[in-house]
Nucleic acid binder design. Structure first.
Lengths: 342, 342
DNA sequence: TTCCTTTACACAATCGGTTGCAATTTATTT
DNA sequence: AAATAAATTGCAACCGATTGTGTAAAGGAA
């Protein structure tokens, strides 16, 4: 009960009159150690409350079995699901996950990248901060052969692994769904362009879908938001509902925005989906709770996390440094719910 | 661009013809090193792209400036806000945060505690897993003088730091609010008792408030849920609405439960708040978005995180091992919104 | 019995900062 | 100028696990 000191393999070695090398090998079932010794060592280690010092092992071997995750925030449902997926894959292969939040700040992202590097993580999974517009701070990983996987919000023109959805196609599908439900005057919220230009892609899909269905693109119906928050969503929605006539559909590239549109519509006496149909993006929990619940595009967050972690683990195993970093595309689907019902 | 090797203080020392000890000290502005040397060393370090190896420093000094956070999940709004608070405080004092999720599993909690210990974290902040009913796996921290702070869901009868709200008082306040709004037949959702018995406390507050206002406690109105999920909330709500007469108020010890009650009520044609008033707990984002928006009890998540981290940092600084571990109580308030309007 | 192959374990260097103490240089005092 | 104090910097051990290499003992074949 009153130990107050870390137990090391030296302590075990002394107790058993063995060399530390034997202890170390015995603990990991090395084939040159006899079963009898292995059993004895493990038992003693257990008794003495031995817990290996990860730092020492990491320092010596220069590998920590740790995956660093650098994301804007853990509070977004999409990102917490992403983490969940990463953890599942990591745990399976006995990796530890360490999470850092950039809070969408470039400066913090730079610092945390350095911190991860300083901690000698074995691999890095990152979704870029909104502010980030250059990726120099990631070169330290690439240069040192540390697998780097970008997820969701990925940089352009940087040869690393990427796990993404096809935002263009997803935007296309969402818009097409609205058209199929009878909309002909479809609005869209777009968001400031940044390095990981997923909103631009969704917008591109929206425009293409309109064109393919012979609907003229009306710039008036494309509202550029400063951020994808509820507040800005309300502003955008009010702008839409001030138009005459109001649009009969909206593709919001985020569920929070879709929610804000639904609520604003309600407040102004506009019926959803009768007068105004809405489709969101992400399949956030809230989209199924709100009334009417909201059609959306699935965003396979957990799968993406799993895929990203697996890429890292795979690359760590076979340390072949093949220079072609693949891009993994995951599928999205339309989830038709009440908010787009005919 | 093509380095492919970690730069160490040895490399800097060689380049400048100085001893590694001088480099090490210069980099942290040790007073025995001249300003000239410090400047020179820092400049060279920068040029060479030196990043200190945290593992080596941690191994030698047996302190890592890392706070381990062990919580059920990052997806709950309360917990992600908690993390946010921890990070703010940690960053201020230049600590790194590493987050692990127990997913409310006892087994995982035990493993991750070991992992944190193995990583030689400087301190630990923990909110217990639902399943956890003994705390032996935390003794390794207490025994080795590693500050341990429990937050929100804390164990009983274990002398460690604790940061909590007064769940009893909060439950009392919530119930009292319903009474003041005219309710006389007030239901309550309670949840399985576990080690960190916050639901029991809230229930105790509920009962006391009723008694103090001369309302008889009706066991029929206290529904014991298996979990605090939306699904179980729906089940509980239906059970309530099957009663004759239905209750006129509900104190749900979680906003998700409150939301489920509101939705279920709507579906059954019961008007909120006219026929049925609801107050939740936590002030989750969803509580303000749902229609009608839901009265709730604030849960100062970020403050709690900040307080917890500060306790650790303070204790690490002054390594006085005072045996009395204080309990920090943070305040809660009723947030009256539409769902409890008269 | 002798030689060779396994089997089982020990030795010691290593990873990269940190730090107590010694050593050297420079500044100050008498 | 000599002596003492102060300012700098170097030396080397240390943290704890890992691993290539060396060695002794045990088993088998000739």
């Amino acid at each position: 009960m009153e130990e107050n000191k870390y137990v090391t393999i030296y302590d075990i070695a002394e107790r058993l009159n063995l060399a530390t090398s034997t202890i170390s090998r015995a603990l990991k079932d090395h084939h040159t150690i006899s079963d009898k010794t292995i059993k004895k060592v493990k038992k003693t280690a257990e008794e003495m409350g031995f817990v290996p010092n990860t730092l020492a092992a990491g320092l010596r071997g220069n590998k920590t079995r740790t995956i660093g995750v650098l994301i804007p925030t853990v509070t977004q449902p999409f990102l917490s699901s992403l983490i969940s997926g990463i953890e599942i894959a990591a745990q399976k292969s006995d990796y530890t996950v360490i999470i850092m939040q950039s809070h969408d700040s470039y400066e913090e992202e730079v610092n945390m990248a350095k911190s991860l590097y300083s901690n000698r993580v074995s691999g890095v999974i990152c979704s870029l901060a909104m502010e980030t517009s250059d990726t120099a701070h990631f070169h330290q990983f690439s240069n040192n052969n540390i697998p780097l996987v970008f997820v969701d919000r990925v940089p352009k023109g940087y040869n690393t692994f990427r796990v993404v959805i096809d935002n263009y196609t997803a935007g296309y599908k969402a818009t097409k769904h609205l058209i199929e439900q009878g909309c002909i005057r479809i609005a869209h919220f777009s968001a400031g362009s940044e390095l990981g230009n997923l909103y631009n892609e969704r917008k591109r899909g929206y425009i293409e879908a309109l064109k393919d269905h012979n609907i003229e693109v009306d710039e008036e119906l494309i509202i550029n938001l400063n951020s994808v928050t509820y507040e800005d969503g309300v502003k955008g929605s009010n702008a839409l509902f001030d138009l005459k006539p109001i649009p009969d559909g909206l593709f919001a590239p985020g569920d929070i925005l879709a929610v804000s549109a639904v609520q604003t519509a309600k407040k102004r006496g506009i019926r959803v989906p009768e007068d105004f149909k809405v489709i969101g993006f992400n399949n956030d929990p809230i989209s199924q709770i709100i009334d009417p619940n909201i059609s959306t595009i699935t965003h396979p967050a957990e799968k993406m996390g799993k895929a990203a972690a697996e890429i890292i683990i795979k690359n760590l195993k076979s340390s072949k440094n093949d220079d072609a970093k693949e891009i993994t595309f995951l599928n999205t689907e339309v989830l038709a719910r009440e908010s787009t019902q005919k």
